[in-house]
């Protein structure tokens, strides 16, 4: 197991959030710096360390607000740790807040080009995969419709279609499987299966035991921002259930 280099190395990572007051004063920033814990702060993620090797499929469990999404954002690089380091040595396709990158006033066509481009897909690749993406999302009639006029289900479908087409070695999935109708869900499952089979590294956050058991071999259990268990998925789920039951 220790032969391959990890693609994700998280070392003592911590993220501190502010409870209540949204903005700190200018004085705090400029004079006191960002050291120390002040009242009203808490660590959404605290001293988390683990390695992920290429091809692993990891499920993250924990109750709401225990740091799962924060962990994924760190790996996606859209949040930075206040303590420790997060080293990701391969590209990431983040299926988190996936509709976030879409712009309401642009057409679906422009949006696909923009989002794919921002995630690092080249122009040639976009052109090549465009039909695939449209077919997957089942939206051929809406290509020139402004994004804002689509139903929320369609929005998620396009977003999933684009981001899941990114040829990145790491895929992050955060609860997106909960949306969409049954038929589309099945397609998403098939697509994720395909990606995992192709040797991608998967990071899945879910509240569904079925999904977790289906895709993941290794589990991470977060409680109160700390990593309390890291082991085979079944064991981690068993521990989580015991905790939830008491």
């Amino acid at each position: 197991m220790a032969v391959t280099e990890p693609v994700i190395a998280v070392r003592d990572a911590g993220v501190r959030f502010h409870r209540g007051k949204r903005h700190r004063s200018m004085r705090d920033f400029l004079i006191r710096g960002e050291r120390g814990t002040r009242p009203g702060e808490f660590w959404a993620l605290d001293g988390v360390s683990f390695d992920v090797r290429p091809g692993e499929a990891i499920g993250v469990v924990g109750r709401n607000g225990e740091g799962k999404s924060t962990l994924l954002k760190l790996i996606a690089g859209v949040m930075l740790p206040d303590r420790g380091t997060v080293d990701v040595t391969a590209g990431v396709a983040p299926l988190i807040e996936i509709t976030g990158g879409f712009v309401n006033d642009l057409t679906v066509r422009d949006n696909i080009a923009l989002t794919a481009g921002l995630h690092g897909m080249s122009k040639a690749d976009i052109a090549e995969r465009f039909d695939d993406i449209v077919a997957f999302a089942e939206i051929p009639d809406f290509l020139d419709t402004p994004y804002k006029h689509l139903s929320s289900g369609m929005k998620v479908r396009i977003a999933f279609a684009v981001v899941s087409r990114l040829e990145e070695p790491i895929i992050l999935v955060d609860e997106v499987l909960a949306v969409g109708d049954k038929a589309f869900k099945r397609k998403c499952y098939a697509r994720i299966d395909e990606l995992v089979a192709a040797g991608r590294t998967l990071f899945l956050v879910s509240h569904s035991d079925g999904d977790l058991r289906r895709f993941c071999s290794r589990g991470l259990y977060l409680r109160g921002g700390r990593l309390v268990e890291d082991g085979p998925m079944a064991d981690v789920l068993a521990r989580y259930e015991t905790d939830a039951g008491t």
Binding site: I96, E97, I98, G100, G101, V103, L118, H119
Partner: peptide
């Protein structure tokens, strides 16, 4: 904000 939160550029 939405784009900043969801894209790692």
């Amino acid at each position: 904000a939405k784009l900043v939160r969801s894209t790692n550029v």
